[in-house]
Design a protein around this nucleic acid. Structure first.
Length: 372
DNA sequence: CGACTTTGACCCGCGC
DNA sequence: GCGCGGGTCAAAGTCG
C-alpha cells in the first residue's frame, strides 16, 4: 500500500499510518526518552549522593579534629591546673575515710573541706580565689547544661540540664560513670530524687543527686544540712523541677579523685552492656537511656560561680533559670560576660553553618595534615 | 555469672 | 521522747 504523504510546516507526515505501529514506535521512543531522562536523573542523584557523602566525610573529619582539639585543650588546662595546685601552699591533703555516720564533727568537716580544695572535680578547680569551671563535657545531645557553684568553700555544685519533659529518666550526662544506689520520693516534688555514686567508688567519694532545682534555690541550706548530717565528701542528686518538668537539677557534692573516664570507656559501658553508666546510657527500668551520643556533642554548658565575678556562661536554657541567674549578685558582670559568650557562640554557630567556611576550613586542615 | 538497678527497710538528725 | 523526712543499705530482680 502506498502511503499518502502530507507536507506540513512541521515536516512530512504519512497519512496511512498504522495506529498500533505508531503507538509502538511512540512507546519505544517515549521509553527511550524516559530511560534517558531517568538515567540523567540517576546520574544527578548519584552526584548528589556522592556530594553528600563527601560532605559527610568532611564533616566527620572536622568533628574528629574538633574532638582532638578539645581533648588537647582539656589536657593543657589540666596541666595548668596541676601546675597551679603545686604552687598553692595548702594543697594536697589526705582525704578522710567516708564515714557512714551522719553526725558531723569538726575534724571531719575540716578534712572534707580540704578534699574540696585539693581534688579537682574533673571540670572544677580553684584559681586563686576564683573558681574556674572548664568545659562541661556534655554527652547529652541537644541538652543545655548550666553548672553553678553556690559557694566556693563548699564542694557542692548544681547543674541545670534542659531535657525532654516526657523523658522520665533522671539522666544528666557529665562525662563520668555513675551507679545509682537509691531513689526517693520527696515531700514537695512528685518527681523522685535519684542518688548516684561515682562508679570508681569507694576509691572515689563523689556522689550525685538529681534534685528539685526550685526548692534548692529557695532553701540552699538543705544541702548544707544534709552535708552536715551525712558527713559526706561528695554527693549528687538528680530530680526534675516542680514548676518546669523539662529542667533536671543535678547536685554534685565532692570532688573526683581520678581523671574523667575516656570516651571509649564511657562508650563501652554505654553501648556494650547498656548498664554500665547511668549517665551515659543507663541501665534498666526507668533509668534506661536510649540515646548514647558522643561526648562533646552539640550540647552546651553554662557554668556559673555565683560567688565570683568569673563566669563562664553560654546560653541559658530556660527563662526561669535565666532569671535566677540574672538576678544574682553579679548581675551586671554576668550579663556582660554572658552577652560576649552568647555572641561568640552565635558567630561560631553561623560560621559552622556556612558551607563555604566549612569547605575552606576542611581544605586548610587537610592541607596542613598533608604537609605534616 | 557478674554487674548493675530497684525498692523496701533501716538509720539518723532535727523539730516539736 | 517521738515522729518525720532525707539518705543509705542490701536483698532481689534484670540483663547481656
Amino acid at each position: 500500500m502506498d502511503s499518502a504523504w502530507v507536507d506540513t510546516s512541521l515536516g512530512l507526515f504519512d497519512l496511512n499510518i498504522n495506529p498500533l505501529k505508531v503507538k509502538k514506535e511512540f512507546d519505544q521512543s517515549n521509553f527511550t526518552d524516559l530511560a534517558l531522562k531517568l538515567s540523567t536523573e540517576q546520574q544527578v542523584g548519584d552526584d548528589l549522593v556522592e556530594k553528600i557523602n563527601r560532605v559527610s566525610e568532611e564533616n566527620k573529619k572536622l568533628s574528629e579534629m574538633l574532638t582532638v582539639m578539645c581533648e588537647n585543650y582539656n589536657a593543657l588546662q589540666n596541666r595548668l591546673i596541676d601546675l597551679k595546685r603545686n604552687n598553692s601552699p595548702n594543697n594536697i591533703k589526705e582525704a578522710s575515710p567516708i564515714s557512714k555516720k551522719r553526725k558531723t564533727d569538726q575534724s571531719d568537716e575540716q578534712s572534707h573541706n580540704n578534699i574540696s580544695s585539693s581534688n579537682g572535680e574533673g571540670d572544677h578547680y580553684q584559681h586563686g580565689n576564683s573558681e574556674i569551671s572548664s568545659r562541661e563535657e556534655n554527652a547529652n545531645n541537644n541538652k543545655k547544661q548550666i553548672r553553678i557553684r553556690e559557694d566556693p568553700n563548699s564542694k557542692t555544685s548544681v547543674m541545670y540540664v534542659h531535657s525532654d519533659p516526657s523523658d522520665s529518666r533522671l539522666i544528666v550526662k557529665d562525662g563520668y560513670l555513675w551507679r545509682k544506689y537509691g531513689q526517693k520520693v520527696t515531700r514537695d516534688n512528685p518527681s523522685p530524687r535519684a542518688y548516684f555514686k561515682c562508679s570508681f567508688a569507694p576509691s572515689c567519694p563523689v556522689k550525685k543527686k538529681i534534685n528539685d532545682h526550685l526548692r534548692w534555690q529557695e532553701s540552699n541550706s538543705d544541702v548544707a544540712k544534709s552535708e552536715q548530717r551525712n558527713c559526706r565528701t561528695s554527693d549528687i542528686r538528680v530530680q526534675r523541677s516542680v514548676k518546669d518538668q523539662s529542667v533536671l537539677v543535678a547536685t554534685y557534692e565532692g570532688e573526683h579523685n581520678h581523671p574523667r573516664p575516656s570516651e571509649a570507656e564511657v562508650d563501652t559501658s554505654t553501648m556494650g552492656s547498656n548498664r554500665g553508666a547511668v549517665q551515659h546510657g543507663s541501665p534498666s527500668g526507668a533509668m534506661r537511656n536510649s540515646s548514647s551520643s558522643p561526648i562533646g556533642s552539640s550540647g552546651s554548658t553554662i557554668t556559673l560561680d555565683l560567688t565570683q565575678n568569673s563566669v563562664a556562661l553560654l546560653k541559658p536554657p530556660r527563662p526561669e533559670v535565666e532569671n535566677s541567674l540574672w538576678n544574682n549578685n553579679n548581675n551586671k558582670n554576668v550579663k556582660c560576660v554572658a552577652l560576649q559568650h552568647f555572641l561568640v557562640e552565635q558567630m561560631a554557630s553561623s560560621l559552622s553553618k556556612d558551607p563555604s567556611f566549612t569547605a575552606a576550613l576542611a581544605a586548610a586542615i587537610s592541607g596542613n595534615l598533608l604537609q605534616k
